[in-house]
Design a protein around this nucleic acid. Structure first.
Lengths: 116, 116
DNA sequence: TTCATGTGTAAGAAAGTTCTGACACGTGAA
DNA sequence: TTCACGTGTCAGAACTTTCTTACACATGAA
């Protein structure tokens, strides 16, 4: 399990990344096996720039990772695959995560540094 | 556990509801005990209309429930509390949920009815 | 009546997200 | 050289979300 206890802000980023039907589908596709951008775009039926944007969002959240590889015929291919994330969401888990949110604190939790 | 296997679209709604620092804080607060709108707004430090909006979003997603009650001095008070939701998010769980998404299907999953 | 408390909603500004279409660059094969 | 395939990025339109301000109503107490 990659991130058992992400920061509150990191959790928000992960949730925001998954809170979209298209991105849910992308993760679902990659869960069945790695794929490269152009092919994935054709499979899902969306434009490549659009897919590129969604992949960025998912990768930034740490849910997928991309690696640039060279195919046999010399083409640069960007392959994406899912990370083995594991998020367990309950009311108390949310309460715990909220302690590490940036901004006006109302709960005496451990203070964190600013986002990079 | 309230919704072990929500529809893909319901899952998106739940995730979208949680994917916001303010709403995460609201759920965290309510996880420690029920509260009414005006008081909660003062506690968190936001305006009442704004809180109202966020509560609507959380309730629509099924994460909290509100009940209108009469206080001892006859005032109408809207109390909110968390439901005992339990979401387990992994790549394969997402793959499973994506099968019940509305729209252009690319996976031969069980078809669902339109959103009410 | 007036004040402090509670409820809700509506209009509009500001900011963020989503999506299209066009552009740039690279390779190998015809 | 031209074509088919891969990569990436940018600008702007369209839409959604977030937030403020102002309004409406109700109650009990002063």
């Amino acid at each position: 399990m990659t991130a058992a206890r992400p920061t509150g802000d990191d959790l928000v980023e992960m949730l925001a990344a998954l809170a979209n039907p298209l991105r849910l589908r992308i993760v679902a596709r990659l869960a069945h096996g790695r794929d490269y951008v152009s092919h994935l775009a054709r499979e899902i039926g969306i434009s490549r720039p659009l897919l590129h944007m969604h992949l960025q969002r998912l990768e930034a959240a740490g849910l997928i990772t991309g690696t640039l590889e060279l195919s046999e015929d010399g083409k640069a291919m960007k392959y994406y695959e899912v990370t083995d994330f594991d998020l367990h969401l309950t009311a108390s888990a949310v309460a715990e995560a909220a302690r590490t949110l940036d901004g006006p604190e109302s709960d005496p939790g451990p203070t964190r540094k600013e986002r990079h």
